[in-house]
C-alpha cells in the first residue's frame, strides 16, 4: 500500500504548527466543547447519585474547618477595622448592618470561593490528572463506562451545589465573629445585633449572593475538571493541572465578581 502522498497523517505533519493566537482559540473552543458536554450529559440518565453525594461530602464537609476559621476571623477583623471610621461620624450603631451587608454581598461568596478554588480546585485537578496519566480514565472508557459522566459531571455538580451552602455558612460564622468583636466593646445582646444586621439585607442581596456562589462553584468545578481531565506528560502534567486549576479558577472568580457587581448594581438603583 503505497499511498503516502494521500495519507492525511503525512499531509498534516507537513502543515505549520499553530501559532500562539490560534492555540489560544483552539483551547477556548476545547473549553466550550467541554462545558457543552457537561450540560448535555449532566442531566441525562443514568445518574451517578451515590458518587454525587460522595463528592458533596468531600467538597463541603471537608472544607468546613478551614472555611469556619477564615469566616470567623474575617468577621472579627472586618468589624474591628470598620469601627474607628464609623466612630468618627458617630455611626457605630450602623456597624452590624455594615458587617451583615458586606459579608453577604461580597466577603462570604468571594472568600468561600477563593478558599474552595485553592482546596477543592487543586484537589480535583490533581486527582483527575493523576487518573489520566495512570490510564484509570482510559480503563473506565474501555469498560464501557462514560468517565466524563462519572468523574466530571458529579464533581462540577457537587461544587455548584456545595459552594452556595458554604457561602451562607461563611456569612453566618463571620457574623458570629463580628458579634464577638462587638460584644467586647459594647453591651449588645446577640438578638439585637442580628436584628440590626439582618434588617438592612434585602431579597436582592440574598439572590445576588446565591447566584454568584452558584457561578463561582460551577467555575471551580469545571476549571479543575478540565485541567485534570486533559492533563498529560506524566507527573509534571499532574502538578501543572493542579496549579492551573487554582490560578485560572481564582482569576475567573475575580472577573465574575466584577461582572456580577456591575450586573446586580443595575437592580439596586
Amino acid at each position: 500500500m503505497d499511498n503516502k502522498a494521500e495519507n492525511p497523517a503525512i499531509l498534516q505533519k507537513q502543515a505549520k504548527p499553530p501559532g500562539k493566537i490560534t492555540r489560544m482559540f483552539l483551547t477556548l473552543y476545547d473549553v466550550c466543547q467541554f462545558v457543552t458536554r457537561f450540560f448535555k450529559e449532566g442531566f441525562l440518565p443514568p445518574y451517578e447519585g451515590k458518587e454525587l453525594m460522595r463528592q458533596c461530602y468531600d467538597i463541603g464537609y471537608r472544607s468546613l474547618a478551614l472555611i469556619s476559621l477564615t469566616g470567623f476571623i474575617t468577621g472579627i477583623v472586618f468589624t474591628k477595622q470598620s469601627r474607628p471610621s464609623l466612630a468618627e461620624f458617630g455611626a457605630t450603631s450602623w456597624l452590624p448592618s455594615l458587617v451583615g451587608i458586606a459579608l453577604l454581598r461580597t466577603l462570604a461568596p468571594l472568600l468561600t470561593s477563593l478558599i474552595a478554588a485553592g482546596k477543592v480546585g487543586s484537589s480535583i485537578g490533581a486527582e483527575l490528572g493523576s487518573m489520566r496519566v495512570t490510564e484509570q480514565i482510559d480503563a473506565m472508557e474501555v469498560s464501557a463506562t462514560n468517565p466524563f459522566k462519572f468523574l466530571v459531571t458529579t464533581r462540577v455538580l457537587a461544587s455548584t451545589i456545595t459552594i452556595p451552602i458554604l457561602t451562607f455558612y461563611t456569612a453566618m460564622v463571620g457574623m458570629l465573629g463580628a458579634l464577638l468583636n462587638v460584644s467586647l466593646f459594647e453591651d449588645t445582646s446577640a438578638r439585637a445585633f442580628f436584628q440590626a444586621s439582618l434588617e438592612q439585607i434585602t431579597f436582592l442581596d440574598i439572590t445576588a449572593s446565591t447566584v454568584k456562589a452558584i457561578i463561582f462553584g460551577f467555575t471551580i468545578g469545571i476549571v479543575g475538571c478540565y485541567q485534570g481531565y486533559n492533563s498529560s506528560k506524566g507527573t509534571e502534567g499532574v502538578g501543572k493541572a493542579a496549579n492551573s486549576a487554582v490560578v485560572i479558577g481564582m482569576f475567573l472568580i475575580f472577573i465574575e465578581e466584577v461582572v456580577s457587581v456591575q450586573f446586580f448594581g443595575l437592580f439596586r438603583t
Binding site: 487518573m131 495512570t134 490510564e135 484509570q136 482510559d138 480503563a139 474501555v142 464501557a144 462514560n146
Partner: peptide
C-alpha cells in the same frame, strides 16, 4: 462504541486499577 467495548476486555500495562 460503549456497547462494543462490553465485548472487548483491555488489560493495561500498569493495570490501571482505581486507586
Amino acid at each position: 462504541l460503549l456497547a462494543l467495548r462490553l465485548k472487548v476486555g483491555f488489560s493495561f500495562q500498569n493495570s490501571a486499577l482505581y486507586d
